[in-house]
Simulated assay, not measured.
Amino acid sequence: MLKTKQIPTAKDQQKKQATYETDTAPLFGDLELLVNELLQGDPDIKRAISKADTGTRGGYRSLQYHMTKAGVTNVSPEHQRILDTLKLDDDFHQSKASDLKNIEHRSPSYRVKLVFEGNTFRKSFSDLSSAQQWRDHMLIMFSETTNLE
Rank of each mutant, 00 (worst) to 15 (best):
R61S: 11
L31P: 13
K69M: 08
P8H: 11
H137P: 03
T85P: 01
I82M: 13
A70T: 05
D53H: 13
K5I: 15
L128H: 03
E37A: 02
L83P: 02
L86F: 09
Q13L: 14
F121D: 00
D89P: 03
P43L: 00
S107M: 08
A97S: 14
E104D: 13
K16I: 14
Q132M: 01
D23L: 14
K87W: 04
Q94L: 08
N119H: 08
S129K: 07
K11S: 14
V112Q: 07
D44N: 13
D91Y: 05
K96P: 00
L148H: 10
F116E: 00
R81C: 09
L31M: 11
E32W: 11
E117H: 03
K46W: 11
T120Y: 01
D90H: 12
S98M: 07
A48Q: 05
L2E: 13
D127M: 03
Q13I: 08
D30N: 09
L114T: 01
K51L: 07
H79M: 04
F116D: 04
L88H: 06
V112F: 04
H66N: 08
E104K: 12
Q6C: 10
A70D: 07
Q14S: 15
E32A: 15
I49K: 01
Q80E: 05
R135P: 03
V75H: 04
I140C: 08
S109V: 07
Y60A: 02
T68F: 08
E21M: 12
D44T: 07
G59A: 10
Q14N: 15
Q6Y: 11
K15R: 15
H79K: 05
S107C: 06
I82A: 10
A25R: 15
I7E: 07
F142C: 02
G58H: 06
K96H: 01
F142L: 03
L33T: 14
D90C: 08
S130E: 03
K16Y: 14
R61A: 13
L100N: 12
Q94C: 12
R61Q: 13
A48I: 04
A131F: 00
P108V: 02
K96S: 08
D12S: 12
Q64G: 06
D91R: 08
N74G: 07
D44H: 14
P43F: 05
I140N: 11
P26G: 14
P43R: 14
T19V: 12
L63A: 06
L39Q: 10
D136V: 00
N74I: 04
A10F: 14
Q133S: 11
N119I: 03
N102D: 07
N74E: 08
N147F: 13
D127Y: 10
L139V: 00
T19M: 14
L33R: 14
Q132S: 01
R111Q: 04
